[in-house]
Design a protein around this nucleic acid. Sequence first.
DNA 1: CATTCACCTGACAACGTTGTCCAGGGCCTA
DNA 2: TAGGCCCTGGACAACGTTGTCAGGTGAATG
Lengths: 345, 345
Amino acid sequence: MAETARHHEPRYGIRPTMKDVAARAGVGLKTVSRVVNGEAGVTPDTERRVTEAIDALGFRRNDSARVLRKGRTASIGLVLEDLADPFYGPLSRAIEEVARAHGALLINGSSAEDADREQELVLAFCARRVDGLIVIPAGGDHRYLEPEIKAGVATVFVDRPAGRIDADAVLSDSFGGAREGVAHLVAHGHRRIGFIGDQPRIHTATERLRGYRAAMEEAGLEVADAWVALGSTEPERVRAAAEAMLSGPEPVTAIFAGNNRVTVTAVRVLAGREHPVALVGFDDIELADLLGITVISQDSATLGRTAAERLFRRLDGVDEAPARVVLPTTLIARGSGEIPPPPGA
Amino acid sequence: MAETARHHEPRYGIRPTMKDVAARAGVGLKTVSRVVNGEAGVTPDTERRVTEAIDALGFRRNDSARVLRKGRTASIGLVLEDLADPFYGPLSRAIEEVARAHGALLINGSSAEDADREQELVLAFCARRVDGLIVIPAGGDHRYLEPEIKAGVATVFVDRPAGRIDADAVLSDSFGGAREGVAHLVAHGHRRIGFIGDQPRIHTATERLRGYRAAMEEAGLEVADAWVALGSTEPERVRAAAEAMLSGPEPVTAIFAGNNRVTVTAVRVLAGREHPVALVGFDDIELADLLGITVISQDSATLGRTAAERLFRRLDGVDEAPARVVLPTTLIARGSGEIPPPPGA
DNA sequence: CATTCACCTGACAACGTTGTCCAGGGCCTA
DNA sequence: TAGGCCCTGGACAACGTTGTCAGGTGAATG
């Protein structure tokens, strides 16, 4: 924030305060407060005078001061990975709706999958004294949150569990979903199936890999090292990983994509292939139906809503042990599973 | 917000204040403030004592109090239509990045295209004394914002201009983009082209329709009434509109879709057709390349960034007349323009 | 007519922080 | 050694609101 050197800032537009309203209406400060808050015990006549003064001056209550006095901010903080990711938009929106129903506002921040930035955001929110926090963790150690939670900041983790502390978490069934998706490929006759997932430090990535391995094992299939690739979801890396497992000595005939970003790039890679390769992806993506992509769908809005409801239950005083809620995923089978070449190509 | 009846709240976890830190460190209140804010004029030894006390107590500065004292909140409010829409995610994210660079946090709210809700959100943000506002307007009358702007709340409108007040606006070239898109269809030999857009009270919708009409006129083509449909972007309505213009006495051979939601539904409708129908859509959508959909792309991130930069320039004291910035759109031609049938169908 | 009571109203303190201003101590210089 | 200056530290008020409490008025009751 640019720091101006001036000390007495010229106060751009001075805002009227309750004091100003009181003076103009010829009443006491507290009476204005009562009118503004709709408290009982004000004569209609007095109320009218105050209301007129408010309108005349364009007064609007300063919630900063109110917050300071009352201790509650009626706001919650949401830290997620990247608001631009289509998975997080609906999640954020769902949380906002629940917050709105509880009269709270939502502050959100993107961690960009960086643990330091996550912590920075979380602590900034705490400094603002948000009533509660919903966190999609980037880091693996949340002990830094312990004093805040002890101080009364309700906290719920979403999509991935907290690290090193005991806290509420609302998750999707990554293991089960991946297992089901891979089993689907097996059922369609595939024997050599590749797995491309996110970075191994991310809980969902390893869980989905676990699901993949479980499904393969259950089918009595060996997994070659070359078939598994965990790492960044940058398009170049995904492309390289996919091409590697498609061209090795034991080329895969199907790929399981660990999340929506991987799926998108994988679709592009596979669309250019001569021999069709099947694809199943974790997370539904727009227009996947038209491309015939089978997916393991997790409803990010439900994830968000569930977490937010849990948060507000805590804020309403419900005091139970932290729990882990796991929401089921849905396999949506579409088309043959092979990606057609792009039209006009 | 659930109101607890208790008056003296038991103060869940009592948070230590600077006073507590001062007492523990055996220094004055202001000295703690100095250390916390990294101000000069504190002996290393004193600073160490204070820092130790801070760590021991788990103190974190209460920014609510700070805000009250300083007058600036280092936060900005963003009101958009729906965070779950893939167009707004990147826009919000871009604004967040700019805000972050300026040390500010972002509060956002979705108006759900409802003018009352927009106003409610905006005024709630003002009550929190956000330093600035970025608004994607739902309503058509923003005179209610005048006192706030006069009181110093910097305001920038995005995607659509403000109604009835003079304020900064950052827009995409809806007219030019639509004209170019329709001209593209004309160039490919289409003569009967339909237009499906959003509700007529939305500025971008009417601008795009204007662009469509301009392109048709420039090509010397008449526009039949049945070829134009403005209204809600609900899938059912778009589907009905598309089917109507495809089956009338003068069926269209191409459709221009007014925004991303229309495009998505239109793609689905057209994918099921026997005779291929061309489609050009406003807004790029994920995987449009694989489906060969030509689009008029507007970069929502740039839109957001431009607006945020303008906002912070104002907050830094730059005082110029409100202006309207129009960003160009890009036509991305893909494939033949015809939608292929879904695979496996 | 005195007393009680309900109801309205306002003075005051407090929330936790920061800006202002002054006091005291150490050090340098004349 | 005295004077002055700089540097550090702290007392105090103020930001705008709300909770507490007491005063004051008028009506109802004995």
